[in-house]
């Protein structure tokens, strides 16, 4: 399975944020979307998750050479940089509700309790209102949703940046364990995080997406090269 972006464009007023985003993401890999602040990472994610409409272009899911279909909003699991969940439910109730409405596509191999165990939310916390949850716990609830519904595409907008070291490590391990069934793209502007977790690094610069060469990833002066690449954007801009 692949996620194909074809010529996605988006402008806000006179400012063109996404110029011509064409790229193919493959299942089984974690992609780090690297870009400077304001490069358009969140805009691209919002276009893919149907939060906003692109001005031009489309995203497709393809399962074979000639088989492709439009990407629907419910194909995409989206973790926002600030997780947003309904305050009035307990963690357990939210997950149960989520399981109810995704009954037809639900994976039967995991029970709700097992999911909670995997993301390490303690039993007493499962029965507390989400209102009182920490940032990390809310993100874990969202990860549970992905384990249950298994959306083909998972987008994570600047995750891990606000986690403590323990939760960050747990989340990394979780993402690695989940990658075989999904296209996982996570945006960040932290270079270390991208190189540490990702199989591929995609740079969003001047409104275009480009894949970094594996050779470059291995080279010693990788950081300098990336910084040069991203700096170019400024000099052109």
């Amino acid at each position: 399975m692949e996620l194909r972006l074809e010529k996605i464009q988006k402008s806000f007023g006179a400012k063109t944020v996404l110029k011509d985003c064409t790229f193919t993401f493959e299942k089984g890999k974690i992609y780090g979307l690297l870009g400077r602040n304001g490069a358009g990472k969140t805009t691209l994610f919002n276009c893919l998750s149907d939060e906003i409409q692109p001005d031009f272009g489309e995203a497709f899911l393809s399962t074979g050479e000639d088989e492709k279909r439009t990407l629907f909003p419910d194909d995409v699991g989206y973790v926002l940089s600030v997780p947003i969940l309904p305050d009035f439910l307990t963690g357990e109730e939210f997950v149960r509700f989520f399981m109810d409405i995704n009954q037809d596509k639900i994976s039967k191999d995991l029970t709700m309790e097992e999911c909670f165990d995997i993301v390490q939310i303690a039993p007493e916390d499962r029965k507390r209102l989400i209102k009182g949850y920490s940032h990390g716990m809310k993100n874990k609830i969202q990860m549970i949703c992905f384990m249950i519904a298994k959306p083909p595409v998972i987008l994570l907008d600047e995750p891990l940046t606000s986690f403590d070291v323990v939760v960050a490590l747990e989340m990394k391990q979780l993402l690695r364990s989940m990658k075989k069934d999904h296209v996982i793209i996570f945006s960040t502007h932290i270079l270390q995080l991208a190189t540490d977790l990702c199989d591929e690094i995609v740079v969003l610069s001047e409104g275009h997406l480009s894949l970094l060469d594996h050779e470059m990833l291995k080279s010693k002066d990788f950081e300098e090269q990336i910084i040069e690449l991203l700096k170019d954007e400024e000099s052109h801009g």
Partner: peptide, 18 residues
Amino acid sequence: YNCDKSMLKFGFYRNPEV
């Protein structure tokens, strides 16, 4: 304030039928 503000961020919740 307590529900739709957060739930509308989910694709399934914005589904016309829903």
